[in-house]
Design a binder for these strands. Structure first.
Lengths: 125, 125
DNA sequence: CAGTATCCTAATGGATACTG
DNA sequence: CAGTATCCATTAGGATACTG
C-alpha cells in the first residue's frame, strides 16, 4: 500500500525516497566532506592540523570551509582548547556517526571496484 | 593483525579503506549521477527522454554527459532501439546494481535527516 | 596553531539552438 | 527522439600570504 503506481504517476513513496537520496547527496557534497567524516570516524577526535595532514592535498581554505558546513549541519563539533597557542578539536557528533552505514558501504564498494578493475587489467595479458 | 598502528603511522588497512571510500566518491561525483542510478534502480529500464522528465531540472547536455560517464564505468548499458525515430534505453548493469546498498543507506539517512529537521522546527514553537 | 583574505584558474553546469 | 554545439555565468577549489 502506498507504493502502487497509477497512470504512470510516480508513487509518493518513491518520490520521497528519491528526495531523501538527494538530500543526503547535498549534505555530503564537496570534494572533501566524506573524507573528513571518514577520517573522524576512523581516528576519532582530531585537531585542525592533524586533519590537514591526514587529508593530504587539502588547502586550509577548503578545510575550514568544509568543517564549517559540517558543523552547521550538526555532523561535527568544534571545541577550542585552552592551550597556548590555542588548539581546536573536531569530533563527530552522534548524528554524524549515524552516517557510518553509508561510509561503510562506500568503503566496501570501493574495494570491490578496485578488485574488479585490477582483475580486468591482469586478465588482458 | 594488520590494523595496528605504530608510531603514529596510519595502518595499511585503514588507508586502503579511506582510498576505497574516495574511489567510490569519485565514481558517483557530479550533480546527477546518484539520482540517475537511483531512478534506474527504482524504475528499471528507461529511455533518454523519460530520464529527462524524471530528473526534473537536468539539461540535455548534463544528462548526456553523466550517462556517458556511467556507461564508461560499466554501471549502465545504452541500447539503441530499432524504432523510428530511434529510441535509446538505459539500464543498470549488475555492476551498477551493486551500488544499491549505498543508495539504500542514503535514502534511509535522508529520511532520518528530514524527520530530524522537521522535529527541530516544530519544537521551536 | 588555527585559521582569514586575496587572487586566480579550471571545471561545473544552465539556456538555447540546432542536427540526423 | 536523442542527442550535439555553442555560449555564458557561477562556483569550486588551489596557491599564497597574512593574522591573532
Amino acid at each position: 500500500m502506498g507504493t502502487k503506481s497509477v497512470d504512470g504517476q510516480i508513487s509518493v513513496d518513491c518520490w520521497e525516497r528519491l528526495r531523501a537520496i538527494n538530500d543526503t547527496k547535498d549534505i555530503l557534497s564537496g570534494k572533501w566532506k566524506i573524507m573528513i567524516i571518514a577520517c573522524l570516524a576512523s581516528f576519532g577526535k582530531k585537531r585542525y592540523m592533524e586533519l590537514h595532514r591526514l587529508l593530504a592535498g587539502i588547502g586550509t581554505k577548503m578545510l575550514s570551509k568544509e568543517l564549517q558546513e559540517l558543523e552547521i549541519n550538526g555532523l561535527i563539533t568544534r571545541t577550542v582548547m585552552n592551550t597556548k597557542p590555542i588548539t581546536v578539536d573536531y569530533e563527530l557528533t552522534s548524528y554524524g556517526r549515524s552516517l557510518k552505514p553509508i561510509i561503510d558501504e562506500m568503503a566496501l564498494w570501493g574495494m570491490y571496484h578496485r578488485e574488479k578493475i585490477i582483475g580486468e587489467i591482469t586478465q588482458k595479458k
